[in-house]
Design a binder for these strands. Sequence first.
DNA 1: AGAGTTTATGACAATTGTTGTCACCATTAT
DNA 2: ATAATGGTGACAACAATTGTCATAAACTCT
Lengths: 316, 316
Amino acid sequence: MSKSKRLLDLMMTVNRKRKFKVQELADEFGVSKRTILRDLQELSELGVPLYSEVGPHGGYQVLNERILPPIAFTEEEAVAIFFACHALRHYSYLPFEAESSSALSKFYYYMSGDIRDRIDQMKNRVDFVTPRRQNEFPYLSILLDGALNQKVILIDYGSREGAACRKIQPVGIYASNGLWYCPAYCFLRQDYRVFRCDRIHSAVYDNSGTEPLDLREVHLENRELFQQEEQGGARLRLQAELTQAGVQQCEAELWLASKLHIRDNGSGWLEGEVPRYDLPFLAQFFIGLGKGATVKHPQELIDEMKRRLTELLSRY
Amino acid sequence: MSKSKRLLDLMMTVNRKRKFKVQELADEFGVSKRTILRDLQELSELGVPLYSEVGPHGGYQVLNERILPPIAFTEEEAVAIFFACHALRHYSYLPFEAESSSALSKFYYYMSGDIRDRIDQMKNRVDFVTPRRQNEFPYLSILLDGALNQKVILIDYGSREGAACRKIQPVGIYASNGLWYCPAYCFLRQDYRVFRCDRIHSAVYDNSGTEPLDLREVHLENRELFQQEEQGGARLRLQAELTQAGVQQCEAELWLASKLHIRDNGSGWLEGEVPRYDLPFLAQFFIGLGKGATVKHPQELIDEMKRRLTELLSRY
DNA sequence: AGAGTTTATGACAATTGTTGTCACCATTAT
DNA sequence: ATAATGGTGACAACAATTGTCATAAACTCT
């Protein structure tokens, strides 16, 4: 590897591991300590703010925190980053305390003129829309902190039937369709549940001494694996036939993903288990699909749909 | 001046003056043409996308890469940028040709260790979910280009009733709920229409000589102002009462934003004009709202809903 | 105090890289 | 045709880089 390339690499490496020893880099780059020392001095001369301390626990450090080295983004990349940040503006609540708009304006400000022009042009022509809700999500930060640092949290949770205090340990948070959700281990139910964050009316760290679980291996993507098996009898087998239009609508529903099957011609069917307490919701959902779906099973669901249809009809 | 320093300088210089001749740089850096040629080749190998043309008026050009000057992001900002880009991974089709993931990995790679740790921790704990659709959107780029550069485009548009060729001039594109839409001026209808991009089965630039309109002032945010007044009789006055639950569902619907009114207690109502041809869609939509909505007006809509409800009931 | 760790610097020789020059080619606009 | 421009190869003079070794200094921990 040529020296020039090594210097560039070194620059990145050094910026990555803010603290390091000469020997470490020497091994990493396959050159002698002496060479690395000389390289580091050269980096210093090129403006990287290095600082060193001798002795055990000493080593090199990059000062001047969080200055990113010159990054070469392609125009496309810069534009993509811009629009990704731009899309966040639809969220009035974010788990990060800082305004994402400040990052955006910095980014914009530093970009050279013609990329700026290009972004200006595109700004009003490309958008990632998220429904703007009026709901409030004041506790995102504390929930996220709980997830990151394995903390138990007490929340006041107002589901439709009334408010209740719950002791939970968050797994993470996610936004979907303009609403924030928090999958968490619920100490009351002794299983994982998803909480809608706008229904959380207060959240404080638990100090009753409940031992946090070790959820470091449980996260958003894999949490379903850790779900307890539901008690027998509480679940129903769902089966429904879908037209093409029905399939399209169901594809948008995350909770259906595992149950949806699609045929080559675009039509499909739903098959899987659902908890009994979801019946009211499911009934309304399938009514909303209209002719797109025909429920085959369970009979209870069909009955509930009929009841609701009749009720609606009688209203007009 | 050492070679390494010269290379870094050259990188900047080359990025500043996007077009240049070898002799020019040779003079500037006080070295021979041969050396500059060798340096340029090395820059190429380091990833700077250089392109050259021989002959008079030829010379070197930097294609699309830029060096951003060192930017100081706060930790929060860096994290926000990262997650914004991260969220784009849910989109399998983007109007930008480059993978946003390449930008992401660069950004990630250059970030100093502790921010990196923080991001690693958060990566599995925060997400912005977008429904993953199977639909294909191969023509986003051409539509966007049409919007940016005022071009007329011919598309094959397959609505439910069958495919048809349309001549349009795009205003922009936007993603909502996992689907891409393209508001555009339709030369057939002589008005603005929104097209669903996955129903566009082909798209080519029009070469029949149709004069493009000047839509530079028309963009995603303000396009509704430019809508033609519909011919009398084709529009209907819509009025519906909403419960709290109904309001929540309607908030997620963009096209309702201008018609939705909310009371202090969380309930609300819908009021506004809708085109008559939307009746079937509206009927299904209000049925989907169930008890959340009570349609007051127009009678035609109520009739259509009754008809559909009866039909559904008869199915079970 | 002493052992151990770490950065810092200098000297030197072997090796490796860099540079300019020159000759020549290919392409292209005028 | 001519001139401008990039592209390549060879080569020798020169310069830089590198590893090794020796030595020093600062610091920590026992």
